[in-house]
């Protein structure tokens, strides 16, 4: 094959949605494999490695985000049905909640309010734009729900997604040190704190510690996603953050 031929094929392919879709899938499977090989090292979380690989590829081929998204939108669209799908683990966790709902709900509601407001207040104090402040508010919610909340309240879903991932990784990495420091020994308490802050990434980490910590982390993650989506828009509007 001669060079002009290759060039023509590239020009054709790079304008078709097929390339963006394929690149997304390739980057994901490579990153996922690397993560498994590393023995599930939280620092090699596949979100970070796959997105980095994808960005490098787009830069190297001089592809604009819009061209890329033409193909990637097919993957992106599935976030909607995937959010609905979270009803199944939520329903299954609710059974566990029956025995402990009062302390867990009180602790989570307080944690959610403190987390959302301190983040918004600090960002505002340090001069971040309203859009950035709003993107920070749902940073502890599992990514699909957090992105949906962000879009709804006027934040930037992509910024929220990035903050969700960073929060998740930080929580998973430093969580256990904080527990030691505070003298927390109960695995169910650790799990609840982990799931509330670090959602899916924290829950995966919690399952590595013990099944009990993982189960409570999953419960807290589901419950806080629910609390955030119901109360955050309302809280932001009554406190005047949302004009």
């Amino acid at each position: 094959m001669t060079e002009p031929d290759l060039n023509r094929i590239w020009v054709y392919l790079s304008a078709s949605p097929l390339l963006g879709l394929t690149m997304t899938l390739v980057a994901y499977s490579l990153a996922h494999r690397l993560y498994l090989r590393s023995g599930l090292n939280p620092l090699l979380n596949p979100v970070v490695t796959s997105v980095t690989a994808l960005i490098l590829f787009l830069l190297a081929t001089d592809t604009s985000y819009d061209d890329y998204f033409d193909g990637a939108q097919f993957v992106h669209f599935l976030l909607g049905p995937a959010t609905v799908a979270l009803a199944i683990p939520l329903y299954q966790q609710f059974n566990k909640l029956k025995q402990v709902w009062l302390p867990v709900t009180v602790a989570l509601v307080t944690g959610v309010v403190v987390g959302a407001f301190s983040s918004v207040a600090i960002a505002r104090l340090l001069g971040a734009s309203l859009e950035t402040q709003l993107s920070l508010a749902p940073k502890s919610v599992t990514a699909p729900v957090g992105m949906a909340i962000s879009e709804q309240i006027g934040g930037l879903p992509s910024l929220t997604a990035a903050l969700v991932v960073v929060t998740g990784i930080i929580g998973a990495v430093i969580g256990s040190k904080l527990f030691d420091l505070m003298g927390i020994r109960d695995d169910s308490v650790k799990g609840i704190a982990m799931g509330m802050t670090s959602h899916g990434i924290g829950t995966a980490r919690a399952f590595q510690v013990s099944a009990q910590m993982g189960a409570f982390s999953g419960l807290a993650m589901a419950l806080s996603a629910f609390l955030y989506s119901v109360f955050l828009p309302w809280l932001l509007s009554i406190t005047g953050v949302l004009g």
Binding site: P103, S119, G175, M196
Partner: peptide, 26 residues
Amino acid sequence: LAVSVSLLVGTFLSVVTTLVLLNVLA
């Protein structure tokens, strides 16, 4: 800077609040 400080401090405050409450209540 605003984003990083807000993320770290906000997360820390919410975890500590939850842990303290759980220790008292649970």
